[in-house]
Design a protein around this nucleic acid. Structure first.
Lengths: 254, 254
DNA sequence: TGAATAGTGTCTATAAGACAATATCCC
DNA sequence: GGGATATTGTCTTATAGACACTATTCA
């Protein structure tokens, strides 16, 4: 019933095979996760970076991350990195891309599964204040559209930061992904507080895309999409006519 | 085992650190690649599968794949899997998603970096004929749009195939990605021969998307995109007016 | 000549950009 | 009231869907 070209005896059961399997037969790479935690304010995207306290890449700035536990899911490892390195919980994350160039880490072969995390500016800055070690980096995206490529990171005082490993590429991929998603998903609200004005939403979109949007068209498109719901509340103390506050509606099945 | 940073002195140089680094300190997962090699014909997407000749998942159908060499780039491992398992070279591939649920492989922790590969039907069937072992599976996508989820695979005679590991999810993700890309990229030509008619291109798009498209609009959109170039040739022996043959133009910088 | 699909032209509906007019808040 | 932005309405333009009509090949 079974062919003879099998590598092990075909009559062997799965259980028997497992008992004889040697998991140390091949040299294995290390697997890590890194999270590009992004937020938007002051007209630019910002990421949370941590200065490396030790070699390799000593003193350079790196994304929060860590090695994946042998029994740990990838998403769980990413959430743990955010919790341990930034004191943050319940953050929207999404797997981005896996970076595995053989020499990307000088220690040994390290393959990293990169994630994007999105959070609103208030939570971002509160986390920085509450837990020392993290730094905010303003991202300077030197390409348009979804071209892609590395991005530059600047400190609060405008100084260019040196990024560890290939983390400039990871951040670039995160921005590229975000720009792409904006065309067909309402992902911008992850960068805003629960209630927000249409202008605030438009500013987030403009910040992500790196160019201005037509106000009328943006407004119509957002309201027509059905993703927004008026709260009945209005913004206050703004020095001009206050705008309606909206919230995002959980998308129902189409 | 869960901490990323080592406890060595921060003033230690990178070189000194590397000399003292112990790469076996943590238990490491195995890292593999799997390729969802897709083509389109007979109004359906098809994938190349290989019946597993041995445990685990003995006799179930799996994507071509393999473990990543300790010095091997991820893309290179994916190409090697296509070469070794299907005898195929120079195939368009793109990284898809990394699957790493702790128990997805019963042997040990295996994290797999999944790729999508696209190839035209002629090369696909030629490869199956030339190298035994591979089988063609017709994909049955039980969801619409970019909802996502697992897909079902059927053999040439219509029998449902049992897929190994989480490969039904990987194939589902591949279809979802392909559908998404179709909205903003000319990726369909990877599934067609070098010269093709507009109708053939439309059929590929319809096959990927799982629904019909408006002919007039599709035609206008494709010609206006600048991605197509008339060859001056026409199809032959078709029993009706022959259509112009087009080729894809390499996209120049926008 | 007839079957069958390719390709063109035109009309209509919808979405985007532009812009003007009015509304509403804080100072 | 003045400054500033929100919100509504209208006009114009670009694109998509629908459909009619002509063109071209093979049998």
């Amino acid at each position: 019933m079974l062919t003879t070209e099998n590598m092990s005896s075909p009559s062997q059961t799965d259980a028997a095979f497992l008992a004889s399997y040697d998991p140390t037969a091949f040299e294995r790479p290390s697997v890590a996760v890194d999270v590009a935690l992004l937020t938007a304010f002051d007209g630019a995207l910002h990421a949370l970076l941590i200065r490396r306290p030790a070699p390799p890449e000593h003193d350079k700035h790196a994304l929060p991350g860590g090695f994946v536990g042998i029994e740990e899911a990838l998403d769980a490892a990413a959430r743990r990195a955010l919790r341990d390195k930034a004191g943050l919980d319940r953050v929207f994350i999404e797997q981005l891309y896996t970076f595995g160039a053989p020499r990307r880490d000088p220690r040994t072969r390290v393959i990293t599964v990169a994630y994007v995390g999105l959070i609103n500016a208030a939570r971002f800055t509160a986390a920085l204040d509450a837990k020392p070690g993290g730094e905010v980096a303003r991202l300077d995206v030197p390409w348009e559209g979804e071209t892609g490529g590395a991005v530059r990171a600047k400190s609060a005082v405008g100084k260019r930061l040196r990024l560890a490993f290939d983390h400039a590429d990871i951040l670039g991929m995160a921005v590229k992904r975000l720009r792409g998603k904006l065309n067909y998903t309402a992902v911008g609200f992850q960068l805003l507080p629960p209630a927000f004005t249409l202008r605030a939403l438009q500013e987030v979109h403009e910040t992500i895309l790196g160019h201005d949007l037509n106000k009328d068209s943006f407004r119509r498109r957002m309201l027509a999409s059905g993703a927004l719901e008026a709260t009945g509340e209005r913004e206050e103390d703004v020095g001009h006519r206050p705008a309606e506050l909206y919230r995002f509606v959980r998308q129902s099945a189409v």
